[in-house]
Simulated assay, not measured.
Amino acid sequence: MRVKPLPLGFVFRSRAKEEKAPAADKAPVNFSKQTRDPQAPKGRPTPKRSEAQSQRRSVANTPTSRKEAAKRQREERRTQMERQRQALASGDERYLPARDKGPVRRFARDFIDSRFNIAEFFLPMAVVILVLSMVRVGYLQNLALLLWLVVIVLIVLDSIVTGFRLKKRLAERFPAENKRGAVAYALMRSLQMRRLRLPKPQVKRGERP
């Protein structure tokens, strides 16, 4: 009996194709109705309009080069310095330098500005003493030296009394606040003439802070 030869394609046919075919038929088809923005990243849903606008705004505000970043930093620094200058003139606590912020420092400034301080007359007295000492007259030079000693002693005594009073008032007014450096801050302010003080005085002389 003669056997018919099998076709070679049947013998050497790839079994991988036969195994993949049923798996492809069984794979679920995703008929998602969610639309995707053509500009959205692949595989992600379309962002909301507000999110897209904020992203575009952040990208627009991001500096593209080192030169542009340096320019933006200079502009921000200039704006901050202008705000501080205005705050020093108006006493606005929001934009004052760190050394002038806080209720303790404000009270210390008001305490000094509300009274006469001998130390604030140091600069004009120093000019007078310097002029007298330059005159080639013996008794005037001696007078200049005497005035210099008197002014120094009065400033030291007045500063000691002012420091003790201020420290006592701060302890009464701000028992739980950090008062470190407040007295020294106030005494340094007392050495300046009233019209040259920064921040500008916010109380009148004789007004109780």
Score class of each variant (00 low, 15 high):
T62R: 15
P5W: 05
P5N: 08
A184Q: 15
K20G: 00
T46Q: 10
T64A: 14
G91T: 03
T79W: 05
A40Y: 03
A16F: 02
A21W: 03
K179P: 07
L170H: 04
G138D: 14
R44I: 06
V156F: 15
K200F: 05
P47Y: 01
R66T: 13
Q34F: 06
E68N: 10
V104F: 05
Y95Q: 02
A186Q: 07
Q84M: 14
T162R: 09
L96H: 03
R109D: 11
R83C: 07
A87V: 05
P175N: 02
R136Y: 11
M193G: 11
V137A: 12
F174H: 08
V161M: 10
R195W: 12
R78G: 09
L157S: 12
R115M: 05
R99P: 00
A69I: 03
Y95E: 06
L96I: 01
L170P: 07
L130H: 14
V131T: 10
I155Q: 05
E19I: 06
R74P: 00
D158M: 05
R189W: 05
T35I: 13
R94K: 12
P124W: 08
P175W: 00
G91F: 00
A119L: 03
L170W: 03
S58F: 11
F31M: 11
P38E: 13
R173I: 01
R106I: 06
M125C: 09
M81V: 08
E51G: 05
R44A: 12
K17C: 00
